[in-house]
Design a protein around this nucleic acid. Structure first.
Lengths: 363, 363
DNA sequence: GTAAATGAATTGTTCATACAAATATACCGA
DNA sequence: TCGGTATATTTGTATGAACAATTCATTTAC
């Protein structure tokens, strides 16, 4: 029998010790569910309140976590010594693109779990990411969400390993590194671009220009999706209206690309911009050149940035669930932090076409 | 009464918070005896078990120690004052308005000083700000930059005092609280709006509509500047083309305001939008109504948001040095953190008119 | 097939009651 | 005076009973 009712040691304490021994001796392993309170009532003959007291203490000591409706689980007992309730988020630039939306998704989910969020801007540079990584480690964050920089894969890998070496879990967001066993959340860029291109084709566009950067996995996938759609439609890919570059976004560069596309447009009737910011630039260039969108040129983007933007320009684009991506990243991170889930979690979310008024139907 | 029995927040938790506040606010001081369980039963009307739960948690958190037969006592809150190199930034919403720019300014300056930045979104709500404040304190940040919420001044004051009570310096950014001796950085909104209005007047506009919220000090000042400029020009202020409201920005509200302004425009030839986001909405409404800007209606904003926006709309606006405001805030904060500078630092930056193409000259 | 409603399992909150254990204090006796 | 003893006070342990809230799983409805 577990409980000796004649003993002077309190019964909740006896139960508490028994449970702790089971855990430490591996009878209840990590992530195992221990008996429910009701079951423990039957096993021990104690009142539920007494059992709750024992369990509450073990929760406090970090042996157990309780989950409503699910039960009580053994958690990895690690030194609480340095674990802070802070996570780090590394984004390119909090002012630009989807970073605000992503950061907000992360922060909301983090706040819901009583975690604070340290924000770091990398400007897509390895050195900045590295600098911030050191700082995050110094502040002993308990987890990191990382949007890889524009640096080569092995550089980004270095950053990730820096954290992992110290048992700080990392989840990649949006951009991913191929052939690396890291948790990530991204969207299906290949399929998204495929659908978006098919949409243009269905609208009668045959010559579709595209401009993007091949330095990010996301945009590379979009290029693939674009090519695949064209091929499936039996249209030869025309390299002269594919304007690529191999660095992070700069206004200067895409101004050039846009001008180049417009000036040699030939029979080109539509432009696929690698993401919304590029689309905005293309749009502004078109305006300056007196080209009407969509009357003279159709335009699609990718991202569907914050409503403030979409009030200004009626851009047909592929909506990425960025906010949800942030939330999902945090959810996975939390799993890892709370010791559980050794399994790799690689989530690919679906995007959705948002039809606005930047595409002309040629039918 | 301490306990609100109709509240959805657990009663033990209410009591717990109340006790914690008493301790933190010094009502119960170090080594004081707090009321006995029996007394608390009488004070609160709760069952003893409930009271014990609240106290147990506080004991766990290190606020109290219990001594048999003697009572329960306030302990010296373990000095986590291991002041981390972390600051907190409280902004309304990192996705919207100038928040990204401000946050970036702060973060850059912080990084330059080897400080990390915890980002908090308040959504302009007191409760969220309060929640984050507690979290920041728990993480023992060494300073806070705070954009006051849309709550009444005394509520915002509570937040500020929460920090100050713990010797955590606070710098207000952008919005300020009158009659409160706190460091702040803002811009001269009165003068900015005055100049902007004078600019419109100089372009020959006599009937100038305006829409903004009076809930923020910044926008109130802009309204004053607007009125002052009109008066100096000998033009009677026409209340029918002043559309105010008294809450934070909502798209719905300003859609209404914009429509109202346009539909009763009379001889109105220009609109002064309280800030750029409002201007964007006004712009989109105009487009939907077929009103050409600036040909049929001139429009000015206030802020001069991120270039991504200004690529989309050629808005004449008052450029606020938001990024610099973030940097300056951090500089002041750093002064306070590093001990020195007891003197109040209240910085008012100058804004600068950016002339683009949303204003027609009527001369 | 998908969304909405329902049900069931489990922890979360609250109550009322009782007796146990520790201990400061007062009291008592030598 | 000293040492023990009783007593009152306060926290500690334990019980049992409800009902609430959350959320996974299933079923139902569209």
């Amino acid at each position: 029998m577990i409980i000796d009712r004649s003993s002077p040691v309190p019964q909740y304490f006896q139960l508490q010790n028994w449970l702790r021994e089971q855990i430490e001796q591996g009878v209840f392993k990590h992530d195992d569910k221990i008996p429910t309170e009701e079951e423990l009532v039957h096993i021990t003959g104690l009142a539920r309140a007494t059992i709750r007291q024992a369990i509450a203490n073990l929760v406090n000591m970090g042996y157990l976590v309780r989950k409503r409706r699910l039960g009580t689980f053994v958690t990895l007992r690690k030194d609480l010594s340095q674990r802070k309730d802070i996570i780090g988020v590394l984004v390119p630039d909090i002012r630009a693109g989807y970073a605000p939306e992503l950061a907000r998704g992360v922060e909301d989910a983090a706040a819901n779990n009583k975690l604070s969020t340290i924000l770091c801007n990398t400007d897509d540079l390895f050195v900045k990411a590295d600098f911030h990584a050191d700082r995050l480690i110094e502040n002993s964050v308990c987890g990191v969400i990382f949007v890889p920089t524009a640096a080569p894969d092995d550089k980004n890998r270095l950053i990730i390993e820096k954290f992992q070496k110290r048992n700080i879990p990392v989840v990649l967001a949006d951009r991913i590194l191929p052939d690396l066993d890291v948790d990530f959340v991204t969207t299906d860029n290949l399929q998204g671009a495929y659908l978006l291109t098919k949409y243009l084709l269905a609208k009668g566009h045959k010559k579709i220009g595209i401009t993007l950067s091949t330095i990010f996995s996301t945009e590379r996938d979009r290029l693939e999706g674009y090519k695949k759609a064209l091929e499936d439609y039996g249209i030869t890919v025309d390299p002269s209206i594919i304007k690529l570059h191999d660095g992070p976004y700069t206004e200067k560069h895409y101004l050039q690309s846009a001008k180049a596309l417009f000036s040699q447009s030939g029979e080109m009737t539509a432009i696929f911009a690698g993401h919304d910011r590029i689309a905005y630039l293309v749009y502004s260039v078109a305006r300056k050149m007196g080209i009407k969108i969509p009357a003279q040129m159709s335009l699609v983007g990718y991202d569907d940035l914050h409503p403030t933007y979409s009030n200004l320009i009626s851009l047909t684009t592929m909506h990425q669930p960025i906010y949800e991506m942030g939330q999902e990243s945090l959810k996975i991170l939390l799993d890892k932090i709370q010791g559980g889930a050794e399994t790799l979690q690689q989530v690919v979310l679906k995007s959705q076409l948002v039809e606005r008024a930047s595409v002309e139907s040629l039918e």
